[in-house]
Amino acid sequence: MNRNRSVFLLSALVFGFAFLYVPIISMIVFSFNESKLVTVWGGFSVKWYGELFHNRRMLEAAWLSVRIAAVSATCAVIIGTMAGFALARFGHFRTRTLFSGMVTAPLVMPEVITGLSLLLLFVALAPLPFIPDTRGFSTITIAHITLTMSYVAVIVQSRLSSMDDSLEEAALDLGARPWKVFMVITLPIIAPAMISGWLLAFTLSLDDLVIASFTAGPSTNTLPMMIFSTVRRGITPEINALATIMVGIVTIFVITAGVLMARQERRRQLETRGAGR
């Protein structure tokens, strides 16, 4: 019976991973296809990569998206860490229920609602002074900060909740100022969570089509908006090449991060074992 179970679970895993990876792999394979007909193999070629790098509009859109993603991820980590820290360490405070509701709601909110509501806010704010009346970089960045800070907050909160606060309390009891305690004890603990939060925020921002479409002005084009308008007309080998590059970068990043974290974890275990002896 037990063997039946493992066979079943193993086949579920094999089927599931095939389902997850076959589309990506086929996209990578066809990006090296010579033929313009996307699904007929016409020999190996890298010409679509060449064409991609000559597509000025695509490159400009990619650069804009990378800038938006970097700025919004950085701001999201700062604000999100504050939110996660408040939720994990401040116990009960007034308006906590509303606060935690507002922090977690963007995680599941359909993008069309978030996009439309932020757009209507920007339109309503436009007549006020100090607000740029053209929508573009700044409005998309604000929208992405709002979306991604929730992810950072949840990651930081769960990291802090799983560590007990006795170290921080001990330092406070010994007379350290709260700010100093945060810098010396809390920050190193949550640093990995903040790094994964930053990477996640960066990816989410780089990938977002719906919210960016709502909050962008008519002359702004982010990379997902360019991809969407190209793809809507059908499949093209150029997009396959672009996808392959993005998958490659992400894979290298994620694997490096995974290896580094595993090494750090092992080192910490060694240290605690050494300290216990």
């Binding site: 990506i24 990477l199 969407f228 059908g234 396959n240 996808a243 993005m246």
Partner: peptide, 13 residues
Amino acid sequence: WTSFLLRVYAWMG
């Protein structure tokens, strides 16, 4: 971690 839009696009192929 890879683009959602591109993964949907992969199924078009």
